[in-house]
Amino acid sequence: MNITSNMAGNVWKITVAEGDKVSAGQDVVILESMKMEIPISADSEGEVEEIIVSEGDFVSDGDVILKLKQ
């Protein structure tokens, strides 16, 4: 399952690592956009399979940030 960005911005912090278990609603990445911290959370629980982005990357609305294994 893909977790995507909901708006354009820079990846400020990645708060999980590959292999981590995450719960539904948990923040996995914090973007910085419009001078605000934009937390991106997991829609459902799972295990972080792959992190696609690095801190400092620009992401557009809809870009895949990480992949979750259920």
Binding site: N6, M7, S33, M34, K35, M36, E37, I38, P39
Partner: peptide, 10 residues
């Protein structure tokens, strides 16, 4: 609501 998309107007 700054919890969602920083409260930015879209």
């Amino acid at each position: 609501q700054s919890k969602v998309k920083g409260g930015v107007l879209f």
